[in-house]
Design a protein around this nucleic acid. Sequence first.
DNA 1: TTGAAAGCGCTAACAT
DNA 2: ATGTTAGCGCTTTCAA
Lengths: 339, 339
Amino acid sequence: MSSENDYKMSSLNEVAKKAGVSIATVSRVINNSPKVNPETRLKVQQVIKDLKYHPNRVAKRLRNKSASGNLIGVLIPDIQNPFYVEVLRGIEDVAYENKYALIMCNFSQDEKKEQLYLDILQSESVDGLIAAPTNEHDQKVTNLVKSGLPIVCVDRGLADVDVDVILVENQNGAYSAVDHLAKAGYKRIAYISGLRQLPSSQEREAGYSNALKANGIPIDRTLIRYGDSRHESGVKLCEELLNLPSPPDAIFAGNNLITLGALETIHKKGLTIPSQIAIIGFDDMYWSISLNPPLTAVKQPAYEIGRRAAEQLILRINDPARPTMSMVMKTELVVRSSC
Amino acid sequence: MSSENDYKMSSLNEVAKKAGVSIATVSRVINNSPKVNPETRLKVQQVIKDLKYHPNRVAKRLRNKSASGNLIGVLIPDIQNPFYVEVLRGIEDVAYENKYALIMCNFSQDEKKEQLYLDILQSESVDGLIAAPTNEHDQKVTNLVKSGLPIVCVDRGLADVDVDVILVENQNGAYSAVDHLAKAGYKRIAYISGLRQLPSSQEREAGYSNALKANGIPIDRTLIRYGDSRHESGVKLCEELLNLPSPPDAIFAGNNLITLGALETIHKKGLTIPSQIAIIGFDDMYWSISLNPPLTAVKQPAYEIGRRAAEQLILRINDPARPTMSMVMKTELVVRSSC
DNA sequence: TTGAAAGCGCTAACAT
DNA sequence: ATGTTAGCGCTTTCAA
């Protein structure tokens, strides 16, 4: 009796044989069906223990098509972005609490990859999906919603379909950041945006514009740069900005990867923050305090977003007919020393 | 003809019916079996396209038990650690290239969670697993290896069983870091270790000790602190160290979360790096340059480790009998301004 | 209260 | 070259 046997998967059949009952009865015991004799139940449970039986999730999913409580897909645009890592953590904690496993798909902002993963997710018969679509009109995710698969969107919604969504106050958050900059006396405030087609980028830009207007600062479109939400574009666009004949005196960075990239450029140029150039980031990181200088940032409740998304998804899986909801989370301006 | 129909999963059966052939023939077409008439193949392929047919991965796995080329499990101790995020990226890229999906399990250094995930992974009939076990004698992973499931370990091996493993030169890396510190004139060099039972922690400690010896510095055990590889323990242990009657003049941090935690403490105390306290981290981050001050660190090729692990796993899935191998990756000391 | 059997979608052995 | 069929492990009628 080697320990190898401990790990050979035993099936319903083996349990049934050993317990001297039919597989149907074993199945009933496992699923807590009330219609089973207490004695039989005890006997079967004992055998299940002895055999270290674990139900085969694959067979279960094949049989049940869905809603069998075991697999959730997560479609993430960029795992390098600490924001999504936190969201993922939130999702994962809730999933674990509810015995769901996660199938994680990081599509790196590549639409082809997104499509492949969506196909895979579907053909894995996931019970539901948490996704951050590439844009509001993402046909791939939209179709999936239409097909009836339970879906919760995070960070970005879908325009053409009714879907649960967890958002943050992008516009307000951006406003508070830029307003802070303006009130501190900065006049030439630049905005480095993430992917322009993202609703979040647009909303943050709106907040930026409004704050400038409210503070009587004219909008200079050379100070607005659009990137791809990645570290490299933070590096590059910050460089462009700093090389301008009349460079900005402050930068509002559209996400944390961009912030990190911009910081890199600023440091390479040997500029001092905030005396030579101020910077404020959208999205905080727990180690922002250890940056040079400690970063002022708009904090999104990323972990909480993940939790809410997962909770909502489970609710929807259990009741596909429930009305859709959209939840908007607050942001918080964390003032440190970068402006 | 609503777009909803586009997403209803069609089965082999439907394709077969529509194409006027048997499901076996369709299966053959899908799996590129040579034994099929070119004309038939064309006809079937057309129907597959029309119906937007995608094979059901669940049925496939149920049927094949494993080695059907589609699902890899990843068991990660801490997704908050940027090192593992990079490893994950490497794994994911290779998986994607080979059409594997990833089922991600982050057990947050919780052994119960680890066990549950291992059970799930097994009952999902994954083709293989990439894992960073909790310690060398991790029975749970060891048993799984014995059961014959293809497994590759990263960052830490398994003592009681033969298994593929991708390691880094922990001892050399630590040595180079501490040697650098010693040569720079630091005398009281502390080591904040991650979880003591991890082979990597032990190897790094060995490198630390050897470097001290080689430089004629006596080992002071009050300067060695053991934590749990997390940010908080970096914060706390650094505090303890700094509060010592005779505090260290330099800190060697056992991993990047600890480094970040230690930095936080140092900044909170208002100490200047490196004049009042030097610090060097094991494991680099791409934004280390933007830390205060730019961090000197031992760089591990994390992304590469992930890639190699996934490549090796796929090799093993395709040939379970191949001899096991262990690969040791080099580290590199990146000198910036923190010491 | 329990069992027998159909069927989820697929592959592969066997038959034609 | 193609079709028929058994069976992977499970849930769920339907019968007993």
